[in-house]
Design a protein around this nucleic acid. Structure first.
Lengths: 222, 222
DNA sequence: TTAGTATTCAACAAGATCGTTGAATAGTCA
DNA sequence: TGACTATTCAACGATCTTGTTGAATACTAA
């Protein structure tokens, strides 16, 4: 029988991309790159890998066209090769969420009660933000915020929430977001805000998904 | 250094799904299951694998929740665990199409000229089919057609096109579809029809994508 | 030029994956 | 009951993956 495992097989080509997604560290790297360009050393620190190992993972990702590199001076900056890759990651997340009990468990570890998650869909946020009914909180680091954020969002990393609580109007709701549906900083922010009596929820997806959906984006400092 | 490769890592969980997609034969099995239930032996024949090997692949897919099994008499039938998986496969295809030169090459091997592909988007087909401007051709096997097809589509496998050409009105266009954007039967059908002077194009996606997009579906014999 | 730094390359061992084989299991049918 | 069949399991080498190490490359800055 034609046991085609040759390079000419279409499925074998798609499997090359599957292989790129078959490693937790590589997925973490992709997730980090979904937030913007990063050089090798930074990625190594963030993932806890050695620099050489990180470089090798990046080579693999580059070979199947998921990331592209451009050299700036001494550093090589990597970024995702296109928006389709964010969609692929989102589909992966969705399937994991739906079909792997472990994922659900891990996400919920961050909350005592299951119901308190209540993610806000992007569309709903759009409508409510326009009417000024809600404060939108971007809990990512300032660099990422500056590179692009949801219009009108206030940049406030989790560590600053306590100090800067008064900046958030008390009467209305708060919606926090960060890098994606599984970026845990948004969860932490919501927990923190609720502890302080605010009506807080988190955005269903994160900023990369917001952008790849073609929704408006604001740039620069707050 | 916190070299987390533990089960508690969220990315490690998503990587389990990536691993399931990291093999051409498994992807082929998933693609086949996107068309409907299949038992182990049938899948073994269609993929050219041994039965034992096929079974082992199916176990892997089941462990990460991508497929589910139900026993009917002597046979175990497998099917996809949900529509999210079709979306994941579609995202994988899209990324492959966009970022892997090899995929494009393979797809185009079936056509001499690149421009002659001209896939029809689902929306466009909806509009034109409603006005009766176009004949929609389902080139899948009758069983699959009976299990669900695009409303008004005529079931005509590639091998029958020559004999049944007169069933296709001569004046108007023809749009052929089968199982997905990389199901090559639709390509063959378009080639065959063009050779015979018809204005033929193929649907951009296939039936599984049509259904998962929530578009209307017709059941039963033609 | 020379020193210094970010990145990549090459080689190695530990471990995972793949398909094959042959045997075990669980159900059907007479 | 007993023969038969679809599927699964277990064990085996051959082949890929992963992360480590140390060296090579390419570029900057003085």
């Amino acid at each position: 029988m034609s046991n085609k495992t040759s390079k000419g097989d279409l499925f074998e080509q798609f499997a090359r991309i599957g292989k790129a997604l078959a490693n937790g560290k590589r997925l973490q790297i992709l997730e980090l790159l979904a937030q913007g360009s990063r050089n090798v050393e930074t990625l190594a620190q963030l993932t806890g890998l050695s620099v050489a190992s990180t470089s090798q993972h990046l080579q693999q990702l580059r070979q199947v066209g998921l990331v592209v590199a451009n050299k700036e001076g001494l550093y090589v900056f990597y970024r995702l090769a296109g928006d389709g890759i964010v969609r692929l990651l989102a589909a992966l997340h969705a399937v994991g969420q739906e079909h792997l009990a472990e994922v659900d468990k891990l996400v919920r570890l961050y909350f005592e009660s299951k119901d308190s998650l209540e993610p806000v869909p992007a569309k709903e946020l759009m409508q409510r933000a326009k009417k000024g009914l809600v404060t939108v909180l971007d809990v990512r680091p300032p660099e990422e915020y500056a590179a692009g954020h949801i219009p009108g969002a206030v940049n406030m990393p989790v560590s600053e929430i306590r100090k800067r609580l008064k900046e958030i109007p008390k009467g209305q709701g708060v919606v926090a977001y960060c890098r994606g549906p599984y970026c845990l900083m948004a969860f932490d922010a919501v927990a923190e805000l609720r502890k302080r009596g605010r009506n807080a929820r988190r955005l269903e997806d994160g900023f990369p998904q917001w952008r790849s959906a073609g929704l408006p984006v604001e740039m620069g400092q707050s």
